[in-house]
Amino acid sequence: MEMNKPILQLQGLRTEFKTGSGWVTAVDDLSYSVNPGETLGIVGESGCGKSVSSLCVLRLLPEPPGRISGGEIWYGGEDLTKVAETRIRDIRGNEIAMVFQEPMTTLNPLMTIGTQLCEPIMKHQGLSRKDAMQRAHELLQLVRIPDAKHWLKGYPHEMSGGMRQRVVIAMALACSPKVLIADEPTTALDVTIQAQILALLKELQDRLGMAVIMVTHDLGVIAEVADRVVVMYAGSKVEEATVEDLFARPRHPYTHGLFRAIPDIDSITSSEGAPTRLEEIPGMVPALDAMPSGCPFSTRCPFVIERCLAERPILEEKAPGHFAACFRELS
């Protein structure tokens, strides 16, 4: 497969949730693509639609209350929003796999690690249980679980959070997927384990050549692993750039605010020694059913002008390969 031909492409994805007051839009006109071997970071705060949109790729969004109400998700020559249920099952865990946030709850507590690892292998590769167990053993070694043989018969509750997340990753990698979607894979882990898991993911990606979509709220994780970044705010993409460009010069006020909110070790205390306040983005994300008519960020934006309130900015290319949805030019 060519490196610069996207393996997965979202076009104008729109997702809605049914609430007491009708349907609200959780993801609005989201487009992005990821190339083979590339890591795309999707960053934003909770509720911005980053997890919801990644669940849509494998049609794992609980319906009801959710629904995909528009857009296309292209994988190969197929639109995943339209393929038959049996086809999407063949893709899940086989060609596109997912790693979820909570290693404590993503595994079945009543099943041995080995059995859980075998399930996708037996289903997608048609191996016998014995051969699948052999493969499961290799997978546990791949994610560096010590004493893998013993753990095949172990249960999730006997493992630490970090080990469980390794198992979840091993399970996702079981059928050598072409795309791995990692939804906050390190959020529930402590920092040292976080670094280990990220390094492991990166190494496995290099080895297996898969594309990774890293969904996170943590810019540190993005800096660590991503090649390209999509910044989401209130269900929409507000900025997209290579990780270098984004960190060097954020072009959307929201991204700008996110960077300013990162605590800096040198300025934790002011020159007089008094603690300084952390910077924050004022206000709150507007509720999904109470979006402002103009730019969704206009209610919190320090650079807001008249036009922002009336008109919704569309994504424009501010510099080669660097897109932002803002009327202003941030310097």
Partner: peptide, 12 residues
Amino acid sequence: QDMIRTAAAKGL
């Protein structure tokens, strides 16, 4: 629960 989503994500 999350584990049901995990099971679905495996393609079961």
